[in-house]
Amino acid sequence: MVNLKVSISKLKLKTPILLASGVLGSSYSTINRVIRETRIGAIVTKSFTWEPRVGYNTPIVAYTKAGIVNAVGLTNPGYRALKEILGNIVKNDVPIVVSIAASTSKEYAEIASFAEENGADAVELNLSCPHVKGHGLEIGQDPEYVGKIVHEVRSVLKIPVIVKLGLTDRIVDSALKAEKAGADAVSAINSIRSVVIDVYARKPILSNIYGGLSGPAIHPIAVRVVFDLYKNIEIPIIGIGGVTDWVDAVEFFLAGASAVAIASVIAIKGLKVIDEIIKGIEEYMDKEGFQKISELVGLAHGN
């Protein structure tokens, strides 16, 4: 009998698939819908910032042969709205992880406390937004600063603290600092900073010029990062990046991820893809003789 339950620190997930931050996670009604209609293991909300953010002007998405490039611009009603949003979520045993994008360690800590007070099961510190100045990647590529933020948040919080890191040369160093400062898990990676130019308009398509590439193109890069992180840190890793089917998810487990988050594939295939991926993992484990996800985690590193 295959058991799909996984634990990420204190979080208990029914299935190893999380909804990654950014898609469908900005209002209680879409979150409730994902919980109601799928076997999702946990939900990571869209990132909440100190002040409300309208987001960027359109176009906010652009096509490439390799996937979607987006620059939504951290649209969110500001962290104070978490009270109402969290209050309206019908969890049904699905942990809610509140994603936070702030610009100082003090802001991260205050928003995290507010999320905890209002019922969040964990927080994810978004230290890797590829397209909003002062709200991400610059922070994530400075390991000392990552350590400082995690320390400050950890010291005021009881619930797990997850750190979301993006692709930088220093991602392993940042993860090590986060672990040392008390982080409970690391999510990797975020979308990758990109530009798309229309050859007839002869202009970048996105109003923000820069966006984040997601989809199949970034999957092997994300697998490499998870593989490297697994060799260096002890805390659980949540693999994110270009998962479109169960094969990609299993690949992440084998590289060292304890759970996998998905996002842009939902835009392409709809909500039903969540259960398709979960069913695929279940069948693979059954056929290949695995009982628990933990048996797969890091198996590709074997002796």
């Binding site: 950014g22 469908l24 209002s27 879409t30 869209k46 979607i68 939504v72 649209t75 939902i266």
Partner: peptide
């Protein structure tokens, strides 16, 4: 805004 069901607008 996005037209494809991801941005939540």
């Amino acid at each position: 805004k996005c037209g494809i069901g991801i941005c939540g607008s």
